[in-house]
Measured scan of single mutants.
Amino acid sequence: MTEYKLVVVGAGGVGKSALTIQLIQNHFVDEYDPTIEDSYRKQVVIDGETCLLDILDTAGQEEYSAMRDQYMRTGEGFLCVFAINNTKSFEDIHHYREQIKRVKDSEDVPMVLVGNKCDLPSRTVDTKQAQDLARSYGIPFIETSAKTRQGVDDAFYTLVREIRKHKEKMSKDGKKKKKKSKTKCVIM
């Protein structure tokens, strides 16, 4: 069974824990209790493949930012979460993405942009803004509501699919490099 290491990042209060708990335990946590770091595991079937999701729910508070490099190193894919009623959390996505790329030393890291709290009427981040940002990053965008469960499975499952595509691409690139290195030079 394939294991996928997913990391949920975003500013404090955007609903990272609520999304994760909704996926794992099928219930909505409405009281806000700032996370330092929590880890969850769940076995699911995605596109006919049974897999184990190892999900790291991270601290959004700035005082825990020193811990970010460590979990970013171990993560295979990242859910970059903002709240649709919090423009600052949307603007912060850029910083999370840049930090992930720096730590992973790669421009090509599996990510999904997630606009959470889409059940709320007080939207300050337009869907088109988020779609445009995701398009500019070359990553999928999904709106979710941890409260109603809308888009929750889709967000995590899409990230797994992005990781699969990335692994497939990397193995193809690896095979191309191996083929090239088999060419021999004969000096007579």
Rank of each mutant, 00 (worst) to 15 (best):
Q131F: 03
R135L: 07
I142S: 01
R161G: 09
D132W: 03
K180W: 05
K176S: 07
T148G: 07
Q131P: 03
G174S: 13
M170N: 08
L159T: 01
S181A: 11
I187C: 14
T127W: 10
E162M: 11
R164F: 09
Y137A: 08
V160H: 13
M188F: 01
D153Q: 13
G174E: 08
V186S: 15
V125K: 03
A146I: 12
K165A: 08
Y137V: 11
K165R: 06
V160M: 06
T127L: 12
L133A: 10
L159G: 02
Q129F: 02
K169A: 03
T158L: 06
V186I: 00
R161W: 02
C185A: 15
V160S: 03
G151Q: 07
S145E: 02
L133Q: 05
G174F: 01
S136Q: 09
Q131W: 03
S181V: 02
V152W: 14
A130K: 04
D154R: 09
H166A: 05
Q150P: 03
E162T: 03
K128R: 09
I187V: 15
L133G: 05
D154H: 09
A134F: 07
Q150A: 11
D153K: 14
Y157H: 13
I163G: 00
R135Q: 11
G151K: 10
H166D: 12
I142W: 01
K177A: 07
Y157W: 14
Q131S: 11
F156H: 00
A146G: 09
A134I: 02
Y137N: 08
I187Y: 14
K182V: 00
Y137T: 09
D154P: 06
D126C: 08
Q131G: 06
V152F: 14
Y157R: 12
A155E: 01
R164V: 15
V160E: 04
M170Q: 08
E168S: 04
V152Y: 12
D154E: 13
I139D: 06
R149V: 12
R164Y: 01
L133K: 07
I139P: 00
L133R: 06
I163A: 01
A155P: 10
A155V: 10
K172M: 07
L159C: 05
E162C: 09
E168I: 06
D126K: 04
M188N: 14
F156N: 01
S145I: 02
K176V: 00
I139V: 11
E162P: 00
M170T: 00
F156I: 13
K178M: 15
G151F: 09
Y137M: 15
K176W: 09
E162N: 03
Q131R: 12
M188Y: 06
Q131Y: 12
Q129Y: 05
G151P: 01
T144D: 01
K169H: 06
L133V: 07
A134T: 02
I139G: 01
K165H: 03
A155D: 00
T183H: 13
K167T: 06
K172G: 14
T127S: 13
R135V: 08
I139E: 01
T183Y: 01
E143D: 13
Y157Q: 15
T127D: 10
M188W: 05
